[in-house]
Design a protein around this nucleic acid. Sequence first.
DNA 1: GTGAAAGCGCTAACAA
DNA 2: TTGTTAGCGCTTTCAC
Lengths: 354, 354
Amino acid sequence: MAANFCVKMKRPRLKDIAEALQISIATVSRALKNHPDISDQLKLRVRQLADDLNYEPNNMALQFKAQRSKCIAVVSPRIVHYYFSTILKGILQEAEKQGYQVAVCETGHELIREVKHIKALTQGLNDGLLICVGNNTTDIRHLEKLQKQGIPFVLFDKDVSRIKAPKVVVDDYTGAMTAVEHLIAQGYRHIAHLQDNGVAHTSQKRLKGYLSALKKHRIPYDESLVLQLNDISIAAGYEAVEQMIRSGKKMDAVFAITDELAIGAMKAAMAHGMAVPQDFGVVGFSNWQIATLVTPSLSTVAQPGVELGQTATKMLIQMIENEQSAEEYHLTRILKTQLIVRDSSFRKRVVVNT
Amino acid sequence: MAANFCVKMKRPRLKDIAEALQISIATVSRALKNHPDISDQLKLRVRQLADDLNYEPNNMALQFKAQRSKCIAVVSPRIVHYYFSTILKGILQEAEKQGYQVAVCETGHELIREVKHIKALTQGLNDGLLICVGNNTTDIRHLEKLQKQGIPFVLFDKDVSRIKAPKVVVDDYTGAMTAVEHLIAQGYRHIAHLQDNGVAHTSQKRLKGYLSALKKHRIPYDESLVLQLNDISIAAGYEAVEQMIRSGKKMDAVFAITDELAIGAMKAAMAHGMAVPQDFGVVGFSNWQIATLVTPSLSTVAQPGVELGQTATKMLIQMIENEQSAEEYHLTRILKTQLIVRDSSFRKRVVVNT
DNA sequence: GTGAAAGCGCTAACAA
DNA sequence: TTGTTAGCGCTTTCAC
């Protein structure tokens, strides 16, 4: 708008180089891509000038021409979240390796934002999507629409069983089962399970793992030991376990759906004079950094976040580059978890294999 | 390549609608944007068909035409990092509000990757950049080049004093000074300072804050109480303080450059029989989530991550939309930190104002 | 070995 | 009220 005394150098285009050298645009283009048809002499002159002018190809034009952006987008419920950060790290690693740019957005588990973001991201800017649906995503019409449009996408972390699409998830069932079997092996018999509202697939799978472990070892299932909480915070875990203890319920261990709940549970038990792990065993889920920092350190089921991110990204890029739609390519990859036994559940010498 | 029996619907273009309706492309374009010139009747027909075909404008074409992508990119040293996650959250919030997409990449504090990423991100795909340089970025030619190219960018978190560009940083100096003054007010007199290699601006500013606080309260400066560590982990903090204690050095408090170092320091002191905060006071920096989880809970200097992200994004978008170059718009915004006093340093009742 | 020209999907100035 | 056309920067086929 305002007059500008300092002449701002416009970005050089092929045309500028062509005109300066009195040759055609096509020749410049070829020279810069080292096309064999162009004489070495001319190539040299072109490159020289391109360097001098600081020429960089205009990516928007390239994209537009190729109708491909080399951009993928990630839709995630949470950003400030250790596990998700590790997934994102894996995504970025793989994308960098393959020369893709990664756009990120957060839905906060709100369906409206999820739908809005997915719509915005697919209006042509991105070649594909990596989506982790929110906990409240029961309506999946937006995903079905993506499929119809033939836009490649991969679902990660949260399974959505009602849709046939490529997915990368973690083996919550086996992870939970292994954790509970470990508690049983350590001699705990009254094992409570702290979960969230139980709606999400992950929660259901982990509950199933818990139940299977009990069944396998013939420990009677006591419904009142499975607590559904509104919140998965440390405070929630604390409160839940405190109430159980106060109520006189017999309980000597907790398997919690998150590390935070587990830590809350541990603190509550300790506050009520129980020694961890001697009187009370605790295992969490996720292997957040805090698990190593609490005292006693927390046993937990580690999820392979980086690997999950990498795997999902590899799948997506493959779909993009082979022009496979999400409908054709419905593969579910299930990654193994790893039980990490730390102090909060280790009171016996036993051989533990994951 | 291979024959495809299922006819894949190609993405509809304006042309398809125009042909079907026997009108011109321009008319379709205008009808869809609700241009007043078009008759309501026609608009209706056009919209109807567009809906039926599931028409979505091709963003690549729009971008190309406008030479603007409504994309910004974030360059960060680390992804799995609580503080950075909060910054990213702020960035995403503001970008979402203003309708921008956000690309993210990680440099791992490696200059080569930083340069490579910045180059890739500026080849036209992004309207501007938010950059947090790595700890080893002393060579800043890549940033100077950005300025010359007139590409809008904002530096965040890490200051680079040698370049005149818009920046958003945290007031490390005052933050550190406040923390140390708090320790002094609590009666500690032999306050050690744990820092990293001291190269980064943040480290230097925090050291200065430490020194100023001592000076202001006439506490003699003891060089041997300032430790430069190779690593900012819990283990490093533990080791450093343990050595100090073993060496018989008089020391009754630590101000550490990170929460992790601080926690390590605290654990070391406790391991050697010192009570925290009675015999030994500890204050960290950053307010990571773990600060609330350790026992005793850790006093620390909180950095406003979300606010920082938002501010940087606002500045960048303003630059983009007003076509201001980084050279013209060299404003440095310094955000206040907040001292959070928890158990690790609170032994006296005093009024604490940030 | 090099140039001319079409076209990617869309917008907007100009024409009718 | 609607159509025509040029053009955004680049690649690529075809012609010479």
